[in-house]
Nucleic acid binder design. Structure first.
Lengths: 156, 156
DNA sequence: CGATAATAATTATGTGAAATAACTAATAGG
DNA sequence: CCTATTAGTTATTTCACATAATTATTATCG
């Protein structure tokens, strides 16, 4: 008689069927791939995901404050400090003083920052299109819409 | 004459239209919501995402080794050690010796581990259904299929 | 057969992304 | 004007993840 309790055979291939029931599992696995690709794509520009995101938002929103930027990025203000320090030391952005509030900074991209933005954004678009090559436009729209709807459940 | 270079008006609402061009941005924002919900859902069971994932895979794959589990979870072997230590100390899993290889462990869930698995899996399913309430079944299938296709670009 | 390579798990250690608490400077509101 | 709030910073912590090195065991190959 068999006794699976005492000596289970080491499975040759791992069954993740339970985990595949969960959308979070699929999202994490897929995002890992996208993030790995993004990291490689940004490496030639000496940008990480966070410095890239901050640069894009500063270029697109000249004059915003650090609090606004941290809020838009979904991180806490203290964590933004080092990110902006890096971008500022590389002279990609400047911390101007806000005209109406001497506590706040008005963040602005420099010309070099805008040029790096142009190149990095183009590179990321190219790389993402490669990752999405097998997915047609209609499906991409559905994907983005579904992800947006999930995001709308944000409680914080 | 206006001079937008010198005193940009602090934008009232932040423009993330460039970032919304990127599927990675949508995936990260959506996953953040799912993960926050998952963390809350697992808290009553004293499980984190990683301990939960490990428990599920051990229950579904009795007898697998730590190397196999680390590979399935996409983490390095050293990082799995503390995760399994925690599950073992709580007597949710055991590290049996593998019958064919005295270096390896044959991981198995205990009865308590399987019971916690049942409750936690049910809770996570309920919570995910809430997050996906506005998304019909056909769209969910498309979403999962698209995420799976992105994942298939895994290079590592 | 025996030396060497490879593998399983562990320990020690480091890094990067997040959070919180506490502080300074400046503004806002009763 | 005095108090509370806000903007930014510093210090510190936690967690997820990685690498290097070590021990024990197994596999390979000359």
């Amino acid at each position: 008689m068999t006794n699976p309790e005492k000596s289970p055979v080491p499975p040759a291939v791992i069954d993740d069927s339970t985990l595949r029931l969960f959308i979070g599992y699929h999202m994490k696995r897929a995002f890992n791939v996208v993030q790995a690709d993004l990291t490689q794509t940004l490496k030639p520009f000496d940008l990480r995901m966070l410095t890239y995101t901050a640069l894009v938002l500063v270029v697109d929103n000249p004059g915003l404050s650090q609090s606004q930027l941290a809020d838009a990025m979904g991180i806490e203000r203290p964590n933004l400090v080092v990110i902006l320090d890096e971008l500022e030391h590389r002279e990609l952005i400047v911390r101007d003083r806000a005209p109406t509030d001497r506590r706040a900074y008005a963040l602005k991209a420099t010309l070099a920052g805008r040029r790096l933005y142009d190149k990095a954004v183009a590179a990321v678009i190219t790389h993402e299109n490669r990752l999405l090559a097998s997915i047609d436009d209609a499906t991409r729209s559905i994907l983005i819409k579904a992800l947006s709807e999930v995001r709308e459940h944000q409680t914080t």
